[in-house]
């Protein structure tokens, strides 16, 4: 998925001219803090020790990592509506899991079907997505790949998808409800 190699700081000129709600330094602090908290939560889960020495090491390591890579994780452009986006993301994940579960059952029925060769009909379909931002293309492509029966072969930066589908039924839902959900998720 070649869509996510644009760094968040490569803004187009007209987006730079928008008056931001926060100043740049405050945005830096916020993105640093969020990255630090995520790293530190992972550290605590992985180390599992709560004494002073291990927590101190964790603070130092997470501060270095957050200082170096805070711009990579959190895009400074849309930091104002980050909580809303995360809330939408939390709502999106159960729906995605439900879809994945349904599609899994379908592929299971295919795998146990005695007349497998006659039932499946693999083909490659192409469609143009209306999503534009790299992050939403990334999420959409990964969601397609996570759903059994469909694998993303290629995504161009302009949103042209090439998808390998295993049979008619799996290809019916493309590009349908999932694209709507992703568009709603990313606020497009």
């Amino acid at each position: 998925m070649n869509v996510d190699n644009l760094s968040p700081d490569e803004l187009s000129p007209d987006e730079k001219r928008q008056t931001p709600a926060f100043s740049t330094s405050l945005k830096q602090i916020i993105s640093f803090a969020i990255t630090f908290l995520i790293c530190f939560a992972t550290w605590i889960i992985l180390s599992g020790r709560l004494d002073f020495f291990h927590l101190g090491l964790g603070v130092i390591a997470c501060a270095i990592v957050a200082r170096l890579s805070s711009t990579k994780l959190i895009s400074r452009r849309g930091i104002e509506n980050l909580p809303r986006q995360w809330f939408r993301f939390v709502c999106y994940v159960p729906w995605l899991l439900y879809q994945v579960f349904l599609a899994n059952l379908h592929v299971m029925s295919l795998a146990f079907n005695p007349r497998l060769i006659e039932v499946i009909d693999p083909k490659i379909i192409r469609f143009k997505s209306k999503l534009t931002r790299p992050m939403s293309l990334f999420i959409f492509a990964n969601s397609i790949t996570l759903t059994p029966g469909t694998i993303t072969v290629f995504v161009s930066i302009t949103g042209e998808f090439t998808v390998h589908v295993i049979d008619e039924y799996s290809g019916l839902s493309l590009p349908g409800e999932m694209e709507e959900k992703v568009a709603e998720l990313m606020g497009e």
Binding site: V100, V107, L116, I117, I120, P122, P148, I151
Partner: peptide, 15 residues
């Protein structure tokens, strides 16, 4: 059971 490697990826990766 699936016939070629493109279709084998469907059960392998996701199930």
């Amino acid at each position: 059971r699936f016939p070629d490697f493109y279709s084998r990826l469907h059960p392998a990766g996701k199930l």
